[in-house]
Design a protein around this nucleic acid. Structure first.
Lengths: 196, 196
DNA sequence: TTTATATGAATGAACAATCATTCATATAAA
DNA sequence: TTTATATGAATGATTGTTCATTCATATAAA
Protein backbone atom coordinates (compact mmCIF):
# COMPACT_ATOMS: atom_id res chain seq x y z
CA UNK A 1 0.00 0.00 0.00
CA UNK A 2 1.39 3.36 -1.02
CA UNK A 3 1.51 6.09 1.57
CA UNK A 4 1.43 8.88 -0.98
CA UNK A 5 0.35 12.39 -0.27
CA UNK A 6 1.27 12.64 3.39
CA UNK A 7 4.76 11.24 3.12
CA UNK A 8 7.77 13.54 3.01
CA UNK A 9 9.45 11.26 0.51
CA UNK A 10 6.49 11.44 -1.84
CA UNK A 11 6.95 15.16 -2.12
CA UNK A 12 10.68 14.85 -2.51
CA UNK A 13 10.14 12.59 -5.51
CA UNK A 14 7.54 14.94 -7.03
CA UNK A 15 9.91 17.82 -6.68
CA UNK A 16 12.81 15.89 -8.19
CA UNK A 17 10.64 14.67 -11.07
CA UNK A 18 9.46 18.19 -11.80
CA UNK A 19 13.05 19.27 -12.14
CA UNK A 20 14.16 16.34 -14.28
CA UNK A 21 11.09 16.33 -16.56
CA UNK A 22 11.43 20.07 -17.04
CA UNK A 23 15.05 19.73 -18.04
CA UNK A 24 14.86 16.76 -20.38
CA UNK A 25 11.21 16.14 -21.13
CA UNK A 26 9.23 13.12 -20.09
CA UNK A 27 10.56 10.40 -22.36
CA UNK A 28 14.25 11.13 -22.13
CA UNK A 29 14.05 11.50 -18.35
CA UNK A 30 15.34 8.43 -16.56
CA UNK A 31 13.80 7.00 -13.43
CA UNK A 32 17.30 6.55 -12.09
CA UNK A 33 17.92 10.25 -12.56
CA UNK A 34 14.80 11.20 -10.67
CA UNK A 35 15.80 8.79 -7.92
CA UNK A 36 19.25 10.30 -7.73
CA UNK A 37 17.84 13.84 -7.62
CA UNK A 38 15.42 12.84 -4.86
CA UNK A 39 18.17 10.95 -3.05
CA UNK A 40 16.28 7.68 -2.90
CA UNK A 41 16.86 4.30 -4.49
CA UNK A 42 15.29 3.52 -7.86
CA UNK A 43 12.98 0.98 -6.29
CA UNK A 44 11.70 3.41 -3.69
CA UNK A 45 9.94 5.35 -6.39
CA UNK A 46 7.75 2.33 -7.05
CA UNK A 47 6.63 2.32 -3.44
CA UNK A 48 5.13 5.77 -3.95
CA UNK A 49 4.17 5.64 -7.62
CA UNK A 50 2.76 2.98 -9.87
CA UNK A 51 4.76 3.89 -12.93
CA UNK A 52 6.62 6.64 -14.70
CA UNK A 53 3.31 7.84 -16.16
CA UNK A 54 1.84 7.95 -12.69
CA UNK A 55 4.60 10.30 -11.57
CA UNK A 56 3.72 12.72 -14.34
CA UNK A 57 0.00 12.63 -13.62
CA UNK A 58 0.53 13.08 -9.89
CA UNK A 59 2.91 15.92 -10.55
CA UNK A 60 0.35 17.74 -12.68
CA UNK A 61 -2.31 17.44 -10.08
CA UNK A 62 -0.10 18.65 -7.26
CA UNK A 63 1.26 21.59 -9.19
CA UNK A 64 -1.95 22.68 -10.86
CA UNK A 65 -3.78 22.56 -7.53
CA UNK A 66 -1.33 25.13 -6.18
CA UNK A 67 -1.48 27.30 -9.29
CA UNK A 68 -5.25 27.26 -9.29
CA UNK A 69 -5.59 28.15 -5.61
CA UNK A 70 -3.14 30.96 -6.06
CA UNK A 71 -4.98 32.43 -9.00
CA UNK A 72 -8.39 32.21 -7.36
CA UNK A 73 -7.03 34.00 -4.30
CA UNK A 74 -5.67 36.79 -6.46
CA UNK A 75 -8.66 37.52 -8.65
CA UNK A 76 -11.51 36.91 -6.22
CA UNK A 77 -10.50 40.03 -4.32
CA UNK A 78 -11.29 42.22 -7.32
CA UNK A 79 -14.65 43.45 -8.50
CA UNK A 80 -14.07 44.88 -11.99
CA UNK A 81 -13.83 42.21 -14.72
CA UNK A 82 -11.29 44.26 -16.65
CA UNK A 83 -9.09 44.50 -13.57
CA UNK A 84 -9.51 40.77 -13.05
CA UNK A 85 -8.16 40.03 -16.52
CA UNK A 86 -5.20 42.30 -15.93
CA UNK A 87 -4.51 40.60 -12.63
CA UNK A 88 -4.84 37.18 -14.24
CA UNK A 89 -2.22 38.07 -16.83
CA UNK A 90 0.17 39.46 -14.26
CA UNK A 91 -0.24 36.56 -11.85
CA UNK A 92 0.20 33.99 -14.62
CA UNK A 93 3.41 35.55 -15.88
CA UNK A 94 4.72 35.97 -12.35
CA UNK A 95 4.11 32.31 -11.69
CA UNK A 96 6.12 31.37 -14.76
CA UNK A 97 8.87 33.73 -13.71
CA UNK A 98 9.02 32.26 -10.26
CA UNK A 99 8.89 28.65 -11.28
CA UNK A 100 10.25 27.83 -14.68
CA UNK A 101 10.21 24.11 -14.01
CA UNK A 102 6.47 24.13 -13.53
CA UNK A 103 6.11 26.34 -16.57
CA UNK A 104 7.99 23.94 -18.82
CA UNK A 105 5.99 21.01 -17.59
CA UNK A 106 2.67 22.74 -18.11
CA UNK A 107 3.71 23.89 -21.54
CA UNK A 108 5.40 20.85 -22.95
CA UNK A 109 4.20 17.86 -21.05
CA UNK A 110 0.64 19.01 -20.73
CA UNK A 111 0.47 18.86 -24.49
CA UNK A 112 2.18 15.51 -24.66
CA UNK A 113 0.01 14.08 -21.96
CA UNK A 114 -3.10 14.05 -24.06
CA UNK A 115 -1.33 11.73 -26.45
CA UNK A 116 0.02 8.99 -24.25
CA UNK A 117 -2.66 9.13 -21.60
CA UNK A 118 -5.80 9.31 -23.65
CA UNK A 119 -8.04 8.69 -20.70
CA UNK A 120 -6.50 11.37 -18.51
CA UNK A 121 -8.48 14.59 -18.51
CA UNK A 122 -6.64 17.40 -16.83
CA UNK A 123 -9.49 18.65 -14.72
CA UNK A 124 -7.41 21.31 -13.00
CA UNK A 125 -6.29 22.81 -16.27
CA UNK A 126 -9.86 23.00 -17.51
CA UNK A 127 -10.77 24.83 -14.32
CA UNK A 128 -7.90 27.21 -14.86
CA UNK A 129 -9.17 28.07 -18.34
CA UNK A 130 -12.67 28.42 -17.01
CA UNK A 131 -11.54 31.12 -14.62
CA UNK A 132 -10.97 33.29 -17.67
CA UNK A 133 -14.24 32.24 -19.27
CA UNK A 134 -16.13 33.15 -16.11
CA UNK A 135 -14.55 36.61 -15.97
CA UNK A 136 -15.64 37.21 -19.56
CA UNK A 137 -19.19 36.08 -18.85
CA UNK A 138 -19.33 38.23 -15.75
CA UNK A 139 -18.18 41.24 -17.76
CA UNK A 140 -20.85 40.62 -20.35
CA UNK A 141 -23.53 40.36 -17.68
CA UNK A 142 -22.37 43.65 -16.19
CA UNK A 143 -22.39 45.20 -19.63
CA UNK A 144 -18.71 46.11 -19.68
CA UNK A 145 -17.74 43.51 -22.31
CA UNK A 146 -19.29 43.15 -25.76
CA UNK A 147 -22.21 40.75 -25.95
CA UNK A 148 -20.97 39.00 -29.09
CA UNK A 149 -17.69 37.84 -27.53
CA UNK A 150 -17.69 34.04 -27.31
CA UNK A 151 -16.31 33.13 -23.86
CA UNK A 152 -15.19 29.69 -25.04
CA UNK A 153 -13.02 31.24 -27.74
CA UNK A 154 -11.92 34.21 -25.66
CA UNK A 155 -10.67 32.11 -22.76
CA UNK A 156 -8.45 30.05 -25.06
CA UNK A 157 -7.20 33.05 -26.95
CA UNK A 158 -6.29 34.88 -23.76
CA UNK A 159 -4.62 31.86 -22.19
CA UNK A 160 -2.83 31.10 -25.45
CA UNK A 161 -1.43 34.60 -25.64
CA UNK A 162 -0.05 34.36 -22.11
CA UNK A 163 1.22 30.85 -22.64
CA UNK A 164 3.12 31.69 -25.80
CA UNK A 165 4.73 34.63 -24.04
CA UNK A 166 5.72 32.31 -21.20
CA UNK A 167 7.17 29.79 -23.57
CA UNK A 168 9.35 32.44 -25.08
CA UNK A 169 10.63 33.38 -21.65
CA UNK A 170 11.30 29.84 -20.61
CA UNK A 171 13.23 29.04 -23.77
CA UNK A 172 15.20 32.23 -24.04
CA UNK A 173 17.21 32.56 -20.88
CA UNK A 174 17.27 36.32 -21.04
CA UNK A 175 13.99 38.15 -20.90
CA UNK A 176 13.52 41.15 -23.08
CA UNK A 177 10.45 42.62 -21.42
CA UNK A 178 9.60 42.92 -17.78
CA UNK A 179 6.64 41.03 -16.40
CA UNK A 180 4.44 44.01 -15.63
CA UNK A 181 4.91 45.48 -19.10
CA UNK A 182 4.12 42.22 -20.87
CA UNK A 183 1.07 41.56 -18.70
CA UNK A 184 -0.25 45.07 -19.34
CA UNK A 185 0.37 44.78 -23.07
CA UNK A 186 -1.41 41.45 -23.41
CA UNK A 187 -4.42 42.32 -21.27
CA UNK A 188 -4.47 45.66 -23.10
CA UNK A 189 -4.85 43.97 -26.50
CA UNK A 190 -7.82 42.03 -25.26
CA UNK A 191 -9.47 44.89 -23.45
CA UNK A 192 -8.87 47.76 -25.82
CA UNK A 193 -7.45 46.28 -29.00
CA UNK A 194 -4.43 47.49 -30.90
CA UNK A 195 -6.29 49.78 -33.26
CA UNK A 196 -5.36 53.43 -32.82
CA UNK B 1 25.44 9.49 -50.16
CA UNK B 2 21.81 10.27 -49.53
CA UNK B 3 19.69 11.38 -52.44
CA UNK B 4 17.25 13.33 -50.33
CA UNK B 5 14.96 16.02 -51.58
CA UNK B 6 14.51 14.93 -55.17
CA UNK B 7 13.70 11.28 -54.50
CA UNK B 8 10.12 10.08 -54.43
CA UNK B 9 10.91 7.76 -51.53
CA UNK B 10 12.26 10.62 -49.47
CA UNK B 11 8.89 12.32 -49.60
CA UNK B 12 7.05 9.10 -48.90
CA UNK B 13 9.05 8.68 -45.72
CA UNK B 14 8.45 12.30 -44.67
CA UNK B 15 4.76 11.86 -45.21
CA UNK B 16 4.68 8.61 -43.28
CA UNK B 17 6.70 10.09 -40.43
CA UNK B 18 4.38 13.08 -40.21
CA UNK B 19 1.48 10.74 -39.75
CA UNK B 20 3.17 8.49 -37.20
CA UNK B 21 4.73 11.31 -35.16
CA UNK B 22 1.39 13.11 -35.08
CA UNK B 23 -0.40 10.05 -33.82
CA UNK B 24 2.04 8.88 -31.16
CA UNK B 25 4.53 11.65 -30.57
CA UNK B 26 8.19 11.54 -31.41
CA UNK B 27 9.59 9.26 -28.73
CA UNK B 28 6.96 6.55 -28.78
CA UNK B 29 7.01 6.47 -32.58
CA UNK B 30 8.96 3.49 -33.94
CA UNK B 31 11.18 3.61 -36.99
CA UNK B 32 9.71 0.28 -38.01
CA UNK B 33 6.25 1.81 -37.95
CA UNK B 34 7.32 4.71 -40.13
CA UNK B 35 8.94 2.23 -42.50
CA UNK B 36 5.80 0.16 -42.66
CA UNK B 37 3.65 3.22 -43.28
CA UNK B 38 5.99 4.35 -46.06
CA UNK B 39 6.18 0.81 -47.41
CA UNK B 40 9.94 0.58 -47.28
CA UNK B 41 12.32 -1.54 -45.24
CA UNK B 42 13.61 -0.23 -41.92
CA UNK B 43 17.10 0.10 -43.30
CA UNK B 44 15.96 2.13 -46.28
CA UNK B 45 15.13 4.99 -43.97
CA UNK B 46 18.81 5.25 -43.09
CA UNK B 47 19.67 5.71 -46.73
CA UNK B 48 17.62 8.90 -46.78
CA UNK B 49 18.01 10.10 -43.19
CA UNK B 50 20.86 10.13 -40.74
CA UNK B 51 18.80 9.35 -37.69
CA UNK B 52 15.37 9.55 -36.15
CA UNK B 53 16.13 13.11 -35.07
CA UNK B 54 17.07 13.96 -38.63
CA UNK B 55 13.67 12.79 -39.82
CA UNK B 56 11.96 15.19 -37.43
CA UNK B 57 14.14 18.13 -38.39
CA UNK B 58 13.72 17.48 -42.11
CA UNK B 59 9.99 17.13 -41.62
CA UNK B 60 9.81 20.53 -39.91
CA UNK B 61 11.69 22.23 -42.65
CA UNK B 62 9.64 20.69 -45.41
CA UNK B 63 6.30 21.40 -43.77
CA UNK B 64 7.09 24.87 -42.46
CA UNK B 65 8.40 25.90 -45.84
CA UNK B 66 5.04 25.09 -47.36
CA UNK B 67 3.10 26.77 -44.55
CA UNK B 68 5.22 29.88 -44.81
CA UNK B 69 4.93 30.20 -48.56
CA UNK B 70 1.21 29.72 -48.33
CA UNK B 71 0.82 32.42 -45.72
CA UNK B 72 2.99 34.94 -47.53
CA UNK B 73 0.97 34.39 -50.70
CA UNK B 74 -2.26 35.05 -48.83
CA UNK B 75 -1.36 38.21 -46.96
CA UNK B 76 0.90 39.91 -49.48
CA UNK B 77 -2.12 40.53 -51.68
CA UNK B 78 -3.70 42.76 -49.06
CA UNK B 79 -2.96 46.38 -48.26
CA UNK B 80 -4.71 47.12 -44.98
CA UNK B 81 -2.79 45.82 -41.92
CA UNK B 82 -6.03 45.07 -40.08
CA UNK B 83 -7.24 42.99 -43.01
CA UNK B 84 -3.89 41.23 -43.08
CA UNK B 85 -4.25 40.17 -39.47
CA UNK B 86 -7.73 38.86 -40.13
CA UNK B 87 -6.47 36.94 -43.12
CA UNK B 88 -3.58 35.56 -41.12
CA UNK B 89 -5.94 34.22 -38.49
CA UNK B 90 -8.24 32.66 -41.04
CA UNK B 91 -5.43 31.11 -43.07
CA UNK B 92 -3.75 29.70 -39.98
CA UNK B 93 -6.91 28.06 -38.71
CA UNK B 94 -7.74 26.74 -42.17
CA UNK B 95 -4.32 25.18 -42.39
CA UNK B 96 -4.88 23.39 -39.09
CA UNK B 97 -8.28 22.27 -40.23
CA UNK B 98 -6.91 20.88 -43.46
CA UNK B 99 -3.91 19.19 -41.99
CA UNK B 100 -4.20 18.04 -38.43
CA UNK B 101 -1.05 15.97 -38.65
CA UNK B 102 1.06 19.01 -39.37
CA UNK B 103 -0.78 20.90 -36.67
CA UNK B 104 -0.02 18.31 -34.01
CA UNK B 105 3.60 18.23 -34.97
CA UNK B 106 3.98 21.98 -34.92
CA UNK B 107 2.24 22.21 -31.61
CA UNK B 108 3.71 19.34 -29.70
CA UNK B 109 6.99 18.40 -31.27
CA UNK B 110 8.04 21.93 -32.07
CA UNK B 111 7.99 22.60 -28.36
CA UNK B 112 9.80 19.40 -27.53
CA UNK B 113 12.37 20.01 -30.17
CA UNK B 114 14.05 22.85 -28.37
CA UNK B 115 14.80 20.40 -25.59
CA UNK B 116 16.36 17.49 -27.38
CA UNK B 117 17.95 19.42 -30.21
CA UNK B 118 19.50 22.34 -28.43
CA UNK B 119 21.43 23.47 -31.44
CA UNK B 120 18.46 23.40 -33.80
CA UNK B 121 16.90 26.82 -34.27
CA UNK B 122 13.65 26.62 -36.14
CA UNK B 123 14.32 29.41 -38.56
CA UNK B 124 11.09 28.91 -40.47
CA UNK B 125 9.00 29.23 -37.35
CA UNK B 126 10.74 32.46 -36.39
CA UNK B 127 9.95 33.79 -39.85
CA UNK B 128 6.34 32.76 -39.44
CA UNK B 129 6.09 34.73 -36.19
CA UNK B 130 7.83 37.67 -37.79
CA UNK B 131 5.14 37.89 -40.44
CA UNK B 132 2.81 38.98 -37.64
CA UNK B 133 5.38 41.33 -36.15
CA UNK B 134 5.89 42.97 -39.52
CA UNK B 135 2.16 43.53 -40.00
CA UNK B 136 2.01 45.22 -36.61
CA UNK B 137 4.97 47.46 -37.40
CA UNK B 138 3.48 48.35 -40.76
CA UNK B 139 0.21 49.27 -39.09
CA UNK B 140 2.02 51.51 -36.63
CA UNK B 141 3.89 53.24 -39.42
CA UNK B 142 0.63 53.87 -41.25
CA UNK B 143 -0.88 55.18 -38.04
CA UNK B 144 -3.67 52.61 -37.86
CA UNK B 145 -2.25 50.74 -34.85
CA UNK B 146 -1.33 52.28 -31.50
CA UNK B 147 2.26 53.44 -31.17
CA UNK B 148 2.80 51.87 -27.77
CA UNK B 149 2.07 48.32 -28.94
CA UNK B 150 5.23 46.22 -28.67
CA UNK B 151 5.46 44.15 -31.86
CA UNK B 152 7.60 41.49 -30.17
CA UNK B 153 4.93 40.89 -27.56
CA UNK B 154 2.00 41.32 -29.92
CA UNK B 155 3.24 38.79 -32.43
CA UNK B 156 3.58 36.12 -29.74
CA UNK B 157 0.25 36.95 -28.17
CA UNK B 158 -1.53 36.77 -31.51
CA UNK B 159 0.15 33.54 -32.54
CA UNK B 160 -0.44 32.06 -29.10
CA UNK B 161 -4.12 32.83 -29.27
CA UNK B 162 -4.45 31.11 -32.63
CA UNK B 163 -2.29 28.21 -31.56
CA UNK B 164 -4.25 27.50 -28.41
CA UNK B 165 -7.46 27.52 -30.41
CA UNK B 166 -5.89 25.08 -32.85
CA UNK B 167 -4.77 22.81 -30.07
CA UNK B 168 -8.28 22.64 -28.77
CA UNK B 169 -9.50 21.64 -32.20
CA UNK B 170 -6.86 19.04 -32.74
CA UNK B 171 -7.50 17.42 -29.39
CA UNK B 172 -11.26 17.52 -29.41
CA UNK B 173 -12.41 15.61 -32.44
CA UNK B 174 -15.57 17.62 -32.75
CA UNK B 175 -15.27 21.35 -33.36
CA UNK B 176 -17.65 23.64 -31.60
CA UNK B 177 -17.06 26.78 -33.66
CA UNK B 178 -16.58 27.19 -37.35
CA UNK B 179 -13.30 28.45 -38.69
CA UNK B 180 -14.49 31.80 -39.98
CA UNK B 181 -16.20 32.66 -36.71
CA UNK B 182 -13.19 31.75 -34.59
CA UNK B 183 -10.80 33.65 -36.86
CA UNK B 184 -13.02 36.73 -36.77
CA UNK B 185 -13.39 36.54 -33.00
CA UNK B 186 -9.67 36.25 -32.37
CA UNK B 187 -8.58 38.94 -34.78
CA UNK B 188 -11.45 41.03 -33.42
CA UNK B 189 -10.06 40.87 -29.87
CA UNK B 190 -6.73 42.12 -31.05
CA UNK B 191 -8.05 44.81 -33.31
CA UNK B 192 -10.94 46.19 -31.32
CA UNK B 193 -10.73 44.63 -27.86
CA UNK B 194 -13.55 43.03 -25.95
CA UNK B 195 -14.58 46.14 -24.02
CA UNK B 196 -18.08 47.31 -24.87
C1' DT C 1 15.58 -3.86 31.59
C1' DT C 2 17.11 -6.98 28.26
C1' DT C 3 16.18 -10.07 24.56
C1' DA C 4 13.43 -11.95 20.91
C1' DT C 5 10.34 -11.36 17.22
C1' DA C 6 7.74 -8.86 13.74
C1' DT C 7 7.03 -5.26 10.43
C1' DG C 8 7.40 -2.92 6.22
C1' DA C 9 10.07 0.80 4.19
C1' DA C 10 14.12 1.05 1.50
C1' DT C 11 17.55 -0.78 -1.42
C1' DG C 12 19.90 -1.73 -5.89
C1' DA C 13 21.32 -5.62 -8.64
C1' DA C 14 19.21 -8.28 -12.06
C1' DC C 15 15.65 -8.97 -15.49
C1' DA C 16 13.21 -8.59 -19.70
C1' DA C 17 11.61 -6.04 -23.23
C1' DT C 18 12.24 -2.47 -26.45
C1' DC C 19 14.12 -0.33 -30.46
C1' DA C 20 17.49 2.66 -33.11
C1' DT C 21 20.98 1.40 -35.94
C1' DT C 22 24.02 -1.63 -38.67
C1' DC C 23 25.44 -4.75 -42.21
C1' DA C 24 25.73 -8.82 -45.05
C1' DT C 25 23.21 -9.87 -48.89
C1' DA C 26 20.10 -9.32 -52.78
C1' DT C 27 18.34 -6.81 -56.61
C1' DA C 28 18.17 -3.37 -60.11
C1' DA C 29 20.43 0.09 -62.95
C1' DA C 30 24.20 1.93 -65.66
C1' DT D 1 30.66 -5.98 -64.72
C1' DT D 2 30.34 -2.28 -61.66
C1' DT D 3 27.67 0.77 -59.01
C1' DA D 4 23.68 2.25 -56.62
C1' DT D 5 19.79 1.12 -54.09
C1' DA D 6 17.02 -1.76 -51.02
C1' DT D 7 16.23 -5.28 -47.67
C1' DG D 8 15.22 -7.08 -42.96
C1' DA D 9 17.38 -10.03 -39.64
C1' DA D 10 20.73 -9.41 -36.11
C1' DT D 11 22.93 -6.48 -32.77
C1' DG D 12 23.68 -4.26 -28.57
C1' DA D 13 22.75 -0.54 -25.75
C1' DT D 14 19.24 1.33 -23.01
C1' DT D 15 16.02 1.48 -19.23
C1' DG D 16 11.38 0.71 -16.75
C1' DT D 17 10.25 -2.47 -13.43
C1' DT D 18 10.74 -6.31 -10.15
C1' DC D 19 12.07 -8.73 -6.07
C1' DA D 20 15.07 -11.02 -2.75
C1' DT D 21 17.33 -9.00 0.86
C1' DT D 22 18.63 -5.55 4.41
C1' DC D 23 17.80 -2.74 8.29
C1' DA D 24 15.78 0.43 11.51
C1' DT D 25 12.10 0.55 14.54
C1' DA D 26 8.24 -1.21 17.11
C1' DT D 27 6.15 -4.59 19.97
C1' DA D 28 6.06 -8.54 22.95
C1' DA D 29 8.23 -11.85 25.99
C1' DA D 30 11.46 -13.10 29.53
Amino acid sequence: MRKRKNSEKYHRIIKAATKVFAKKGFYPAKISEIAKEAQVADGTIYIYFESKDDILISLFEEQMKTVLENMVAQISKLKDPAEKLEKFALTHLQLIEQNKDIAEIIQVELRQSSKFMKEYKNEQFIQYLDLIGDIVKEGQKKGVFKKDIMPGVAKRAFFGALDEMSRFWVLSSRKRYDIETAAKQISGYFLKGITA
